[in-house]
Design a protein around this nucleic acid. Sequence first.
RNA 1: GACCCCAUCGUCUAGUCAGGUCCAGGACACCAGGUUUUCAUCCUGGGAACAGGGGUUCAAAUCCCCUUGGGGUCACCA
Length: 548
Amino acid sequence: MSDPVIRTRFAPSPSGHLHVGGARTALFCWAYARGHGGRFVLRIEDTDRARSSDAATTAFVADLAWLGIDWDEGPYYQSQRLEHYHACIARLLDEGRAYRAFETVEELDAARAAVRSGGGGEGDRGGGRGGYRYDRAALQLDAATIEQYLAENRPHVVRFKLPDGDRVITFTDVVRGDIEVPAAELDDFVIQKADGYPTYHFAVIVDDELMGVTHVIRGEEHLYNTARHVLLQEALGFRRPVYAHLSLIFNPDGSKMSKRDKDRAVRAAVHEKKFESPQAGISRDQWDRWLSSKKHQLPAEVTERLAGALGVALPEIEVEDFRRGGYLPEVLVNYLALLGWSPGGDVEKFDAEYLIEHFALDRIIKSPAKFDRDKLLAFNLDALQAMTGEDFRDRLRAHGERYHGEFLRTLGAGKFSMFAGASHARSKTLDDAYRGCGFLVAADDEIVYEQTRAVRKALTGGDPDGYAHLEAMRPVLGAQNDWSIAALEQCVTSYADEHAGGKLGTVAQPLRIAVSGGTVSPAIFDTLAILGRTRVLNRIDRCLATRS
RNA sequence: GACCCCAUCGUCUAGUCAGGUCCAGGACACCAGGUUUUCAUCCUGGGAACAGGGGUUCAAAUCCCCUUGGGGUCACCA
């Protein structure tokens, strides 16, 4: 028999958008399958009915697609595969390798709390979980009692019965090496919840077997869980896949990078600015509950609305955040691949093809990595600058269609191309081009002149001052027929040569302020060209009117 | 707390498995100077690490042990 076809799978739980950590896992699974003539399976682990939503599934399927990660099979939904889990549970029950247990969640919580407090000293907060293990009380129930409970429809779970004896569970992880877990560290864990759904541990081993998964590449949080999976596989006679556990991705401050970071950012701003009233969309109750405890999180939409109202930038955590931020998918892929894997040597810029060809499990980094946004940004800048003008324009348009519709509506194709040309060299992200350029698509009377020192200095400093130059330039520009970038440059430069000692800046800055309201814009000639003569002259007049 | 994993510049890492070619290379960030019509770029130069302590060896970033630090797991969440 020849080697079985390699199969990897990405198996996220559908809650919210795809997180960068998940994206990296997906990327590695995908690259490994693609590089080894294998198949990549997408499976949605939606066995927690409270936390799963169709919207979330749709969202991260879109996120994966944007990254260029495609799959050969699926998406499979575990919620639609209950029959498979039930069949395996029944087998285990029949063989006495699993049993029903009738304790309630409350009872178990109380038991855990008792062990914790009885365990001795005052635990430091958060720590000291204690070593609670299920006491197997349900195993003592006699058949008649169980029969009766069942007849009463008493809710119950199914627990896996750990093999007897002091065995040590061993397995090999390709990144961590041989792992040993004494069975004594485990207890009879739940494999089927009271609602009839399998737990993660159970669904995962059934599906991996049924789907022929040969390589399991997943986050390090699952390393220890693997011992349970190994036991389950043995009990059911399943094959054992190759395991590779990836270390986690952290924030620069060392905390775990998580969706909660957004909530945290908003919370800090709310406290700082003493925001009191609840925001539209949530009740006073919800608001108070959120304020009272860091354990509560606001719905994502509310968090975003709040951030907008408070003027705080939410940290980019999910793939969609980076997309909105104007990062290129190929750059994110490149950067993510580098976080936890290295091709060796000095290579660090590469594309998906390269990753597929070179990605290997034995070069996965063991230690956790911090997510460095500066480096990602630098990579994005490099990729943007390496593009042709046409490519940049097309990408900029695609980004605008999704996030900045007003530019597409206001600027015609010709003006948009000028806008792209003017933005290319100065953009680190696609979004940079739009950010701060609202004046290009605003009406003349919407321009607000910034009241800053830099503005005042450019307008009133020097002799003659900026206003005087504006006043003098106004008829010059009014008489300018050729409104091309080159002609404008010629026109303004020669004015500067004659009246400003050749210092373009003393003329360009007042002009920039007049047409944009501030001191920052694309190159001045491009800006004037995009705006067109009428608007430029209008704005110069409006600016001159602010002269005191 | 128990059990387990990890450890090279501020950050991501190359080098570690097959010890010498490494007074440790690259990238991002930082600092200094320069170019530029603003912002952003761009150019030149610079500082910056083998966590600590013991071993083994002619020789250790590389092998072993301890300490310290960081992380993971301990749910009817995945």
